[in-house]
Design a protein around this nucleic acid. Structure first.
Lengths: 236, 236
DNA sequence: CTAAGTCGGTATCTGAGGATACAGAATATG
DNA sequence: CATATTCTGTATCCTCAGATACCGACTTAG
């Protein structure tokens, strides 16, 4: 079967993408037949999509890595996310009325990218194939989680003082893993970036918290010594 | 028909909700039959849902208005959104793995709220009824647009200087309506809040921009005099 | 082993912006 | 029309956090 051959070599990778989670291999073949995706190959530094280009499909990184960047009206570009194998991009505008790519995606290493036409995702086929329901459910889950993440980010960014940001972040992390001993998933630079503050200022504040006996830390290992103090500091 | 009678008085309002956009009145009746929503009535100040409660349904405000608020670990609450008639809440967690309400919703005036069970939205019915496709499409659109909005908010919040925030905001507004004369949709307090800065500081900066001849303004009426200068200021 | 690069902690200096206060303009209320 | 209230612009003061620089600890490559 032509289709099978066409996508055969991608099947392995595709089946690992979260969008296809819970769908049987055989069904995925049927889906590809129905969705008619396109596979693109890119060299390092190639532009995969350009901000402002016509938007037609969501993208899935099958191999390699890429950066998502956006430039403001003044013309300086800033990297928003790093895409790795299995990551999806363009999914939040797929069902909006936005008709152009809101950001630029550029290959960081050689990439293979699968494009699914936006219109095909809901499915034209009258008989809503069984896999289609799972697929849509996955899609909704992914986009929801993205929104939740964004919400969280807005929360952190809205906090005024560096001290309060750190306290909020540490509390969240600690709650997430259920322990007062945390291993930060980010290094100082990345964390400072995430909280939108400068690294030295953050280090200074962390030092103060340590001096006050609220936390202790060495590199990415952080221990919360005084939960109450952390909570008190969150609000200021 | 029992169902028809049950929902009859809400039908008018429900059909105006964006989630049901493009679905015929008759189909909506069928949907309600299938979705089995619950209608709740609340007095002013009643809690509609409490943060931390078990999450089971998305909510739609049929009548009245309500506030969405969240409290941080320290215990102070901050209002995140104001819900009006036709607004939806809880939609971003509906398809995530989150099992509890992430925020508290409280009636600001007497409210009627429709709750749609999260599980019913994708639809169990094998024969994916025609309206169901449109419904899911609407749902995806709504959640996408929410994510886009959040993205935009993150962009503004990430900008460091007040001046750059103002410039970015004014440029966006101007682009949106396609004119250099803008009537701000927010008063000074609200705008300062939105940009996460203090009102006097914002006014000070706007004053400077006026002194420099970049903009002119009187209350909510703003005119951009020098687009180039605005763009230059965005990046700093 | 040396050299170069990265990462984290710390000190100094400076300025952007927050808090507060107040007055005049605009709007609402009787 | 008079009064009250909300909204906006502006000045003063002062703190928090950014920029920069430097050092020591590790890591990697040659």
């Amino acid at each position: 079967m032509a289709v099978k051959e066409m996508y055969e070599k991608y099947l392995e990778k595709i089946s690992e993408v979260s969008l296809f989670q819970g769908i049987k291999r055989l069904d995925i073949e049927a889906m590809l037949n129905c969705l008619k995706p396109i596979v693109g190959h890119y060299k390092r530094s190639d532009y995969i999509v350009n901000g402002g280009d016509k938007y037609e499909s969501i993208g899935i990184v099958l191999k390699g890595s890429a950066t998502v960047s956006k430039e403001n009206a003044a013309g300086n570009r800033s990297v928003m996310t790093l895409l790795k194998q299995g990551d999806i991009f363009g999914e939040i505008v797929a069902f909006s009325s936005v008709m152009t790519w809101p950001a630029t995606v550029q290959a960081q290493e050689a990439c293979e990218v699968l494009f699914l036409p936006r219109g095909k995702i809901i499915g034209d086929c009258e008989r809503m194939c069984s896999w289609h329901r799972i697929f849509i459910q996955n899609f909704l889950r992914i986009i929801s989680e993205r929104a939740i993440l964004l919400n969280k980010k807005v929360e952190y960014l809205t906090i005024k003082s560096i001290r309060a940001k750190i306290c909020a972040y540490l509390l969240d992390q600690s709650k997430k893993i259920g322990s007062e001993k945390i291993v930060l998933p980010l290094n100082r630079n990345e964390l400072a970036d995430f909280l939108n503050v400068s690294r030295p200022s953050m280090s200074r504040e962390m030092g103060k918290l340590r001096d006050e006996g609220v936390i202790d830390f060495h590199l990415t290992a952080v221990e919360i010594l005084d939960f109450q103090a952390l909570k008190n500091n969150m609000s200021e």
